[in-house]
């Protein structure tokens, strides 16, 4: 990117643009962060108010040695990778279909955003009842065409894929919206030039559009990964982490430790570990694609 000549004016400009955001974020995020790190180093269970003492890395060691933690971690990865890749593919496809001028595109653009606008609480309950094998509409419709539906979220093997589908239903619009806006902002010339040179639509999509969209694609992926990692409403309402622990993700585990069992130190430790995992994943992705170098 082009760099402006250095000057005091530029410095003031830079500071005036950056400062409000950074001050706000620092002000609001440092305190909970410090509180969490501190709690993760203590023995802190709300049911033992007189038993509050420093334990160093004990909570971390205990969690890292706990197979339940690693199972939840792998399960979370499964959910995140499944949900985000599905959302990305669908979102990219739909954004591509909607980027051109054709009659009716505006209606589609509005309707496709709706799932994201539907309040998660209400929609999670509606999905739960729809997925119910005996009270739900999905298996009923399937039975009309002669398919015996699954016990979607009651079965250890199908519970995560089912939750991925629900998550994809809600969040594909997020991908679509960002990528569609990206498509619409792209300059036209490279495509026109390519068409003149006889490139197929396929070629211009992969060799021109995707590289230009890369920064936005990465942003959309990063945010979906972060948010999918912390998915709560959908999983908690539909399965509560069950059957067994087959849908207990790290975030559900954190909630249970903190709010059901009142183990503040374990919940904080889990939170810090999740933070570290996310930092590693996001650093990896952004390094891989050179986004931090742009």
């Amino acid at each position: 990117m082009k760099v402006y000549s250095s000057s005091t004016q530029k410095r003031y400009f830079l500071i005036s643009m950056l400062a409000p955001s950074l001050i706000l974020l620092a002000f609001f995020s440092l305190y909970p962060f410090v509180a969490n790190v501190k709690n993760s180093l203590m023995h802190y269970n709300l049911t033992e108010p007189f038993n509050y003492y420093f334990v160093g890395a004990n909570n971390y060691l205990r969690l890292l040695g706990d197979k339940l933690f690693w199972q939840a971690f792998l399960r979370t990865l499964y959910f995140v990778v499944g949900a985000v890749s599905l959302e990305f593919l669908l979102g990219l496809g739909v954004a591509y279909l909607l980027k051109d001028d054709f009659r009716g595109r505006n209606i589609f653009r509005v309707i496709y955003i709706l799932p994201m606008g539907a309040t998660p609480i209400a929609i999670a309950f509606v999905w739960k009842i729809m997925l119910n094998p005996s009270l739900g509409i999905i298996n009923y419709v399937l039975s009309l065409v002669g398919i015996h539906g699954l016990d979607w979220v009651g079965n250890p093997t199908s519970v995560i894929p089912s939750l991925i589908l629900v998550d994809a239903w809600v969040w594909t619009p997020f991908m679509m919206l960002i990528l569609l806006a990206g498509f619409l902002t792209l300059a036209k010339e490279p495509f026109e030039a390519a068409e003149i040179e006889g490139a197929s639509a396929f070629q211009s999509f992969f060799y021109i559009a995707l590289p230009l969209l890369k920064p936005l694609i990465l942003v959309a992926l990063l945010f979906r990964i972060i948010d999918a990692f912390r998915t709560f409403d959908i999983i908690f309402v539909i399965t509560g982490g069950g059957p067994g622990r087959y849908s207990e993700t790290l975030n559900i585990m954190t909630y249970l430790q903190g709010f059901k069992f009142l183990h503040i130190s374990y919940a904080s430790t889990l939170a810090v570990l999740m933070l570290i995992i996310l930092i590693v994943i996001c650093t990896f992705i952004s390094q891989l694609q050179g986004i931090r170098e742009t």
Binding site: S21, L22, L25, F28, S29, P32, F33, N36, L222, F223, I226, D227, F229, R230, F232, L250, N251, T254, Y255, G258, F259, A267, S268, L270, A271, M274, L275, L278, I279, C282
Partner: peptide, 12 residues
């Protein structure tokens, strides 16, 4: 800036 979004909401 990105990491400020990463904390699980329940612990904050």
């Amino acid at each position: 800036v990105l990491t400020t979004r990463m904390m699980p909401p329940v612990v904050v």
